[in-house]
Design a protein around this nucleic acid. Structure first.
Length: 592
RNA sequence: GGGGUCGUAGUUCAGUUGGUUAGAAUGCCGGCCUGUCACGCCGGAUGUCGCCGGUUCGAGCCCGGUCGGCCCCGCCA
């Protein structure tokens, strides 16, 4: 760079700087060479400034500028010039000015980039990830990282202000049962033993409460070795927190304040608090899942009562076997074609529905439907009434076991909303979902597993049910849902050993196993554990929603592909035989 | 583990019923051009049609397999 010092960023200069001598450094975005005057759009993280090489002003520098190419790295020194009349570019922040270059230094040359770094071309994600450092030069991508930085700053200052301590917890820790598959790290100094990377700092943050830290937070990586999705990476970031001497209301208040701060910082939006709340049961009944998108209607209506004695065998037998019949009224959708209906039937089949019955509402309450004939006039009238169906409406029915009915109709509801464009992209609807069941039955493992995690406190009045009817026990867990995405969750924790013992028992964890795996926690609970509770937010998902992106990969600097690989570094990779033997791993592993 | 979809020039894509020399745009290279801003004009070069095998007189196109990207189901306390 010689004696040149950068004086401004490429988004900084305006009318007020006219006449000043400045030095900019950045990358060549585009070159417009007129034979005479040459324009270069110089780009850095912040924006773009047009720099001008005029042969009449400086022939030597102009000649040098002729050879500039895309993504060369430059330092330019020159005067800020008011652009001539009619030459102002309103699309640029710096569009009123340009730099008349006196000195050009080529800090580095570049090969022709493997893909254009403009905003127009849609480049395959694999290529973008292989050259992520080029991809991130694109302003849209850079803006996502800048927004994420500002969000983290806002989170830290908000929590610091209300007496939270940021405390680090180990990455090399022990594997615990329950939950996701662990990433394992072999121990060199302990033959045959393994660390696990944390799925969350759950137990450590509880131990920090027992240590009297009172309020803890951490913006921290968590690791889960499960398959990837657009909103799931094997390593992801949580805003993790834990508080002592609090109940649900304290958590809600602090979380709502945090979300308010985030929306203000990232989108300059004021949001309304307190957030609405809904029990798990109500969410399932009305929306079919525990993370309802409340930006639109299309709610589910139960018809089980109405049709339980009907003569339609499909519906009747489902009800007799403990199933449900539920329906969505798609207002005004009677114009859907046969193909639309077939597509939707195929769509819900992915979610386990064996069929999708439909009714097109005609004049005078008449049903146009393959299943109309199975019902009496009275039954049809009653269903029409319950669903509030009117001429022009389209009714969908799914009959099956509750889990399938709810899942299929919840997904149908979302698909209908997308097709009908019912979702306002500028709305941010938060919702607390509460009173989750403590346990759910795992048919494969033939035992109950924790819906949240094994350290979640049950409702006190439900404690007696732990032995008699464990599936009925409600937990003091809560999820925060934003626009139909679970962005956070937590619970009041168990802080008494006898309750924790009961919880392990209900999960089918024997005393021996509990002692083996969780002795440190059980011991700690007996040494003055305060009542405590916590919550964790998925930062990647939050940023994805706030940045209006479809994938968390767009808000992560170096994300993984669906195969959990990194096209840039080519991780994961083979390792030297010696590395394996040092770790007491058999180096000649073959697929059996 | 399963389903769907994509893979052709550096990039984004087109490629008919299986038929002769695989195209377009953009980028790249060269020339011209003093006010552009996705500058313009003229010219030029550029292909392991992901990979392997099969069917066929003949395969970018059909079939089987495989690798990779993306979306989804399962999975993700």
């Amino acid at each position: 760079m010689g004696n040149l010092k950068r004086t401004h960023s490429c988004n900084q200069l305006g009318k007020d700087n006219i006449g000043q001598e400045v030095t900019l450094m950045g990358w060549v975005l585009r070159r417009r060479d007129h034979g005479g005057v040459i324009f270069i759009d110089l780009r850095d993280r912040n924006g773009i400034t047009q720099v001008v090489f005029n042969p009449e002003l400086n022939g030597e520098v102009h000649a040098k500028a002729h050879g500039l190419r895309s993504e060369w790295v430059l330092a330019v020194r020159g005067k800020v010039n008011h652009r001539p009349d009619g030459m102002i570019n309103p699309k640029l922040q710096t569009g009123e000015i340009e730099i008349l270059v006196d000195e050009l230094r080529i800090l580095n040359v570049s090969k022709t980039p493997p893909f254009p770094l403009d905003e127009e071309t849609e480049v395959s994600e694999n290529l973008r990830l292989k050259y992520r450092y080029l991809d991130l030069r694109r302003p849209v991508m850079a803006e996502n990282l800048v927004m994420r930085h500002h969000a983290c700053q806002a989170i830290r200052s908000y929590l610091n202000e209300i007496n939270f301590l940021e405390i680090e917890t180990p990455f090399l820790t022990r594997s615990t049962p329950e939950g996701a598959r662990d990433y394992l790290v072999p121990s060199r100094v302990n033959a045959g033993k393994f660390y696990a990377l944390p799925q969350s700092p759950q137990l450590f943050k509880q131990l920090l409460m027992i240590a009297g830290m009172d309020r803890y937070y951490q913006i921290v990586k968590c690791f889960r070795d499960e398959d990837l999705r657009a909103d799931r990476q094997p390593e992801f970031t949580q805003v993790d927190m834990e508080l002592s001497f609090v109940d649900e209301e304290d958590i809600y208040l602090i979380a709502e304040g945090l979300m308010t701060t985030l929306l203000k910082t990232t989108r300059n939006l004021e949001i309304k608090t307190p957030f609405p709340r809904m029990t798990y049961q109500e969410a399932m009944d009305r929306f079919g899942n525990d993370k309802p998108d409340t930006r639109f209607g299309l709610e589910l209506t139960s018809l089980t009562e109405v049709i339980k004695d009907c003569s339609f065998k499909v519906f009747k037998s489902v009800v007799e076997k403990g199933g449900l019949v539920k329906s969505i009224n798609a207002k005004g959708c009677a114009t859907f074609s046969r193909k639309d209906l077939d597509d939707l039937t195929t769509y819900v089949a992915d979610f386990g529905a064996k069929g999708l019955a439909w009714v097109k509402m005609k004049a005078d309450g008449e049903w146009q439907s393959p299943i109309a004939k199975f019902f009496t006039d009275q039954e049809r009238a009653e269903m029409t009434r319950v669903l509030g169906a009117e001429e022009g409406d389209l009714l969908f029915f799914v009959a099956d076991q509750p889990a399938i009915v709810h899942n299929a109709l919840a997904e149908l509801r979302l698909e209908l909303a997308r097709r009908l464009e019912l979702i306002d992209k500028n709305t941010f609807d938060f919702l607390w979902v509460t009173e989750f069941p403590l346990l759910e039955y795992d048919h494969e493992a033939k035992r109950h597993t924790a819906v949240h995690h094994p350290f979640t406190a049950p409702f006190e009045e439900d404690l007696a049910l732990l032995d008699s009817d464990p599936g009925k026990v409600r937990s003091r867990a809560y999820d925060l849902v934003l626009n139909g995405t679970e962005i956070g969750g937590g619970s009041i924790r168990i802080h008494q050993k006898n309750i924790q013992d009961k919880a392990f028992k209900a999960l089918g964890i024997s005393d021996e196993e509990a002692t083996d795996k969780f002795d440190f926690l059980l011991t700690a609970l007996e040494l003055g554990a305060p009542p405590h509770a916590g919550i964790a937010f998925g930062l990647d998902r939050l940023m994805m929603i706030l940045a209006g992106r479809e994938s968390i990969r767009d808000v992560i600097a170096f994300p993984k592909t669906q195969k959990a690989g990194c096209p840039l570094t080519d991780a994961p990779s083979s390792v030297a035989r010696k590395q394996l033997t040092e770790l007491y791993l058999r180096p000649d592993w073959k697929e059996s």
